[in-house]
Design a protein around this nucleic acid. Structure first.
Length: 426
RNA sequence: GGAGAGGUGGCCGAGCGGUUUAAGGCGCAGCACUGGAAAUGCUGUUUAGGGGCAACUCUAACGAGGGUUCGAAUCCCUCCCUCUCCGCCA
């Protein structure tokens, strides 16, 4: 959520920044509603003050022996009633304005950072660096990961669809073992890099989803448990960031680094027909996520190191990848700056997103009321939140199945995974 | 799921219709005392919004939301959460 004071004081600057994301964001109504709301608030609090005076005066007069039925008190009561009538007229108006304002603000995306490249859509994203060209497999007859997996008997698609529906899979035998090895490996690495592991709830309430930005705008992307105010987690970003919702942290608690393995559930609405085969786009997938809660002054550096922590996994697995910086037109709703890591998938000859590392600034902290207090300083400040995949497991599995494929339809196990799997070939 | 008890400031805990402007304690910070410390004393110690250049000032908040009243932490209703016992359960 953007700071209403920022919008109030610099509407033009906010407008210009939002325009970099594309059309359709208008703050005119927000500015106007804010003005009306403050007018009403001033009136209301003056009436309230008078009402408090009257209440206090009656109390004192009764205490000092006045007749509660006497004329003096009766006329005060009459005035109290009159004030109350006026208040009961203003209050609902102000409430309504506040609710409208809140809705508009919740639907407004974050402002892109000054350093985010300007562009209209994904075609104008910027490649920052590339790693591991020397590890790209030279074999030209590499099977897509779904073919090799079915040949190996480690992936059951049709049977999983029978159990759930399309875009669900089951892993068997070495497939399940590889998935589990990847999870353990990634967690171990990120813990060694300084992240504290968390196993959070996988069902999440609405307030949490609103804080991180999935609600209200993107309700159709998540699975909801109908009879409860609970949703299946779309990413561990939500439960991890929300651990600190409505808290005032002390400055020595920051920075907070968390990593977590969770399954992730997404409806993938609007992507019918896209990536229908394999492990790329599923309603349920596993992910190891990184989340940071930091001081504002450090968040840009923390963002860079977060990206490096995610990259370290790809490097350890010797999977070729590139780092893309998203342009203003492709930036996610809550991010002010974002890098995607894209892994090389040789069967299709493309790079595919395997991690997305975003800096949210105080956008989520404001929605979720995550604040901290600097020792010796007055008042509180919003923390900055960041997160990134470290990494998406299913897509990593796909990348391993393709980049480590051997001509005899077996898979060489990446060196760093061998201790987890106890073998060199699957 | 059944029965009961609760939810008050950073923490403990009193208050159960009117100087509560939330007692008292603990903790924390500053000052005094001290060679230094402990102990002691004094002072201070929430958050958010509005107005003001500022000093300051008004409003709101006692789990959440409604209601009764001139006035609600206190009474009524709904919901959420915690604890205890019983049942069920990995």
């Amino acid at each position: 959520m953007l700071d209403i004071k920022l919008i109030r004081d610099n509407p033009e600057a906010v407008r210009d920044k939002l325009a970099l994301r594309g059309d359709g964001y208008d703050i005119t109504e927000i500015v106007e509603l804010d003005r009306q709301q403050r007018d009403l608030e001033t009136q209301r609090s003056q009436l309230q003050a008078r009402s408090n005076e009257i209440g206090k005066a009656i109390g004192q007069k009764i205490k000092s022996g006045s007749d509660p039925k006497g004329e003096e008190i009766q006329s005060l009561k009459a005035e109290g009633n009159q004030v109350k009538t006026q208040l009961s007229d203003l209050e609902p108006q102000e409430k309504e304005l506040k609710a409208q304002l809140e809705t508009l603000l919740l639907n407004l995306p974050n402002l892109p950072s000054d350093s985010t490249p300007i562009g209209k859509d994904e075609t104008e994203n910027v490649e920052i660096r590339r790693w591991g060209d020397e590890h790209k497999p030279q074999n030209e007859k590499i099977l897509p990961h779904w073919d090799i997996a079915e040949k190996m008997g480690i992936l059951a698609v049709d049977r999983a669809v029978k159990v759930a529906q399309s875009r669900f899979v089951a892993l068997l035998g070495a497939g399940a073992a590889l998935e589990r090895a990847l999870i353990s490996f990634m967690l171990d690495r990120q813990i060694a890099a300084g992240y504290t592991e968390v196993i959070p709830p996988f069902l999440i309430n609405s307030a949490s989803l609103q804080a991180t930005g999935q609600l209200p705008k993107f309700a159709e992307e998540s699975f909801k448990c109908d009879s409860d105010d609970l949703w299946l987690t779309p990413t561990a970003e939500v439960p991890l960031t929300n651990l600190y919702r409505d808290e005032i942290l002390t400055s020595d608690e920051l920075p907070i680094y968390h990593c977590a393995y969770t399954p992730c559930f997404r409806r993938e609405a609007g992507s019918y027909g896209k990536d229908t085969r394999g492990l790329i786009r599923l309603h349920q997938f596993n992910k190891v996520e990184l989340v940071k809660v930091v001081r504002p002054a450090t968040s840009e550096d923390e963002h860079q190191s977060l990206v490096r922590d995610a990259e370290a996994i790809l490097q350890a697995l010797k999977l070729p990848y590139r780092v893309i910086e998203l342009c203003t037109g492709d930036l996610g709703f809550g991010a002010n700056k974002c890098y995607d890591l894209e892994v090389w998938l040789p069967a299709s000859g493309t790079y595919r997103e395997i991690s997305s590392c975003s800096n949210f600034g105080d956008f989520q902290a404001r929605r979720g009321n995550v604040r901290f207090k600097e020792k010796g300083k007055k008042g509180t400040q919003y923390a900055h939140t960041l997160n990134g995949s470290g990494l998406a497991i299913g897509r990593t599995m796909a990348a391993v199945l393709e980049n480590y494929q051997l001509p005899d339809n077996t898979i060489r196990v990446p060196e760093v995974l061998q201790p987890y799997l106890g073998r060199e070939v699957l």
